[in-house]
Design a protein around this nucleic acid. Structure first.
Lengths: 149, 149
DNA sequence: TTTACTGCAAAGGGTTTGCATGAGG
DNA sequence: CCTCATGCAAACCCTTTGCAGTAAA
């Protein structure tokens, strides 16, 4: 995507959510959606080069607002709160060694629906969304571990 | 389970993990395993009647140690860090209205294994464990909502 | 007797809030 | 113009750490 297109898209994202398009917000939106599971600190650090005076509170406030508007989902981890940008149903493959988080789209064929239906049938629960983390070793960490044996 | 049996079980749990059995720890273990997804604050508040001088740091330290020894799992939520006591594979049904968290054992027949295998096949990932939260309305909140329509 | 645990207080880190200034619609 | 967003600083949790006293093994 060209920078200009991305900028227009960011404006539309904000407008649809009923938010004003300030230069800081456009940059935050661009930065958040160009990353996989960013933290506030990561977004803040990335933007300080472009906006040396940007406040950490601005990033916090904007991400809270974006969460309230449903643009992203909050994803609390043990060491940091991350933000889920990919709102299509998927699992997060979380490497317990290097910390990498990879999206896994394993639900193409109604797999997720079956899980929801089971939960629903068993407990009278009405599912709206889900968080699925699979913890283990990513490919490269698994290979490194195997080589040491 | 009778109180005496529970006490003996708590001692064994601590011993197997290589931890000393102090009166405070026995009470923490009892309290943690008698709850579903306790927070540090909930355990602390429950124990202050029995141990008026117990320190909040003691509860924090003990739960951190228990996590390191694999007795419980840390489960960060947006508003609080909870602890997973049920280490058998299951989903947490999290009510977005009242906050209730219910365990759902929907994986009796290898459902979970299939999910793991898909992740593994697609990404070369070696799964070790998982966290599955399903967000929505619990039975009673769903019924209340339906009645208002 | 040695080592680990407790409890208190202080420090630390992440997140929110209050307020004056400034910019968007 | 009026409202909302920014940036700074202070306040606010929640959690960890340091340390002296104490109890477990």
């Amino acid at each position: 995507m060209l920078p200009m297109e991305r900028n227009l898209e960011s404006i539309n994202i904000l407008r649809r959510a009923g938010l004003r398009s300030t230069p800081q917000r456009l940059a935050i939106v661009r930065e958040v959606f160009s990353r996989h599971h960013p933290t506030v600190a990561e977004v803040y650090d990335a933007l300080r080069r472009e906006f040396p005076t940007i406040g950490l509170a601005t990033v916090y406030n904007t991400l809270r607002t974006m969460t309230e508007k449903g643009l992203v989902h909050e994803l609390p981890f043990v060491n940091a709160t991350r933000f889920e940008v990919n709102l299509t149903p998927h699992a997060n493959l979380v490497c317990t060694r290097c910390g990498e988080i990879e999206d896994s789209e394993v639900f193409e064929d109604g797999f997720l629906n079956e899980m929801r239906q089971r939960a629903s049938a068993a407990a009278g629960f009405e599912p709206e969304g889900q968080r699925i983390d699979i913890y283990g070793l990513c490919r490269s960490c698994a290979e490194q571990t195997a080589n040491k044996l």
